[in-house]
Computed example of a mutant assay.
Amino acid sequence: MSLSRRRSKWLARTPVDAAERQLTSAMIASLGAEGLPTVSAPFGHALVEIAHQRDDVVGLTADLGKYTDLHVFAEAFPERFYQMGMAEQVMFSAAAGLAKEGLTPFATTYAVFAARRAYDFIAMAIAEDNLDVKMVCALPGLTTGYGPSHQATEDLAIFRGLPNLTIVDPCDALEIHQATHAIAAHKGPVYMRLLRGQVPSILDQYDYQFELGKAQLLEDGAEVLFVSSGFMTMRTIEAMRLLRVDGIHCGVLHCPTIKPLDVATLVKHCAKPGRLVVTAENHSVIGGLGESVASALLQNGVTPAFRMIGLPDEFLDAGALPVLHDQYGISTDAVVRQVKHWLAH
C-alpha cells in the first residue's frame, strides 16, 4: 500500500491536531509564488475536452484517480474509465493492449511508481512496439514532502534512455492544458510529469503556446540565461525579476520537452557570448535536463560558463515543502542566492 494510502487510513483513525494539519498542508504546499492565480485539475479538464471530440480516448489509473486529476475524466466518461487498483505493471500492460486495439489510453499514477515499479513493462509492452500510450504521472521530483518513497527525483534519468519515448515536463496549469492536447495528437508513447490539484498559472503572461519538442525564450538577458523545465520555470521567472531589481539582467529559456531536446534553440541562445548559462530542474542533477543540455552544447561546440541547479544525488528528507525546497536549493530565494554567488566568484 502506498504511503499516501497508508497515511489516509492512519489519519482516519487517529485524532489530528492543529500542528499535524499544518504540517500536512505544508507537505503539499503550492508551488507558485504567493498571489499567482491557480487552475483546478488542468489535466483532467483538458482530457475531458479531448474525449468529447475523440471516442478512442480512455483513462486508466492505479488507485490514484483523485490524486492525478483523472477523477474529472471518470465523472464525465465512466464507461471509458478503468480503475486498475494498486497494480501499476498490470495497468501499463493493459494500456498497451488497448493501444493495440486502436484506442488511445491515458494511464495515470505517481511518477515514482511508473519509473521504479513498472519500467520493464513500459519498456517491453509500450516503448518497444512504439504504442500510442500516454503516461501522465503526478508528484514529479520534490513536489511532496512524504519522503523518498514518493519523491520521483530520478524519473527523467530512468526514462531518457528509453527509445521511442517522448518526455514532457510542463511548467504550469496553462502548459499542462496545452500539452495534454498536444500529446493526444502525437502518435507514440509519451511520459508527462504532472502538477495536480490547484496548479499555478504564470505562462499566460507571455502569450504562451506549447509546442511539442520546442524550447521557447520567455525573456532575454545579457548576464544570465536560465534554461529550465517544469515548475522550476516558475522559480526562474521569479528569480529573474528579483535579480533585475539588483541590476542583474537575466533571461529564461523554457524547455518543457526533455526528449527530444530542442538542440537548435538551445545552441542558438546559449552560444551568445559573455553570459552565464544556468539550468534549473526539479530533478536530480544526475541524468536530467542539466546534463542533457550540457551534452548537447558540448557536442555542438558551444562552451559557455555553465552551472546546474537541481536536486542532489541522494535520497531526500521528508518535511514541509517550502523548507525542503530551500534546503535543496530549488526555492526562488535559493536560486537568487546561488546565481549571485556564481557571478561574484
Rank of each mutant, 00 (worst) to 15 (best):
T265K: 01
G301H: 10
Q205V: 01
A41S: 15
W10M: 14
A280E: 03
E49A: 15
F159Q: 02
L324T: 00
M27C: 04
H150F: 05
P37E: 05
T144Y: 04
L242N: 11
S25R: 15
L174Q: 11
A118S: 13
I126Q: 01
K9L: 12
W10H: 14
L174Y: 00
L103Q: 09
A26K: 12
K100S: 11
G329N: 04
S284T: 11
M124H: 14
S201F: 05
P15H: 10
N300E: 11
P260N: 10
L218E: 02
Y67V: 13
G290A: 08
A51W: 06
L165Y: 07
A184Q: 11
M27K: 13
M84C: 15
D169I: 07
F77Q: 06
E291L: 09
L23Q: 12
A114W: 03
V72L: 03
P78G: 09
K66Q: 14
A115V: 10
E238L: 00
D313N: 12
D132Q: 03
L174C: 03
A305F: 06
L316R: 07
L266H: 02
Q198L: 13
R6Q: 15
A111I: 02
R116H: 05
Y328G: 04
T236G: 01
S331D: 07
L276R: 01
F226S: 05
A18S: 14
R6V: 08
G319H: 07
V90F: 12
V199P: 05
H52W: 06
H341W: 11
L36P: 01
A18W: 00
S149A: 14
A96Y: 08
E101M: 15
A185W: 09
V224D: 04
L311F: 06
G247R: 09
P163L: 08
S93D: 10
L217M: 14
I50W: 06
L343W: 01
K134Q: 07
G319L: 08
T143E: 08
R235K: 10
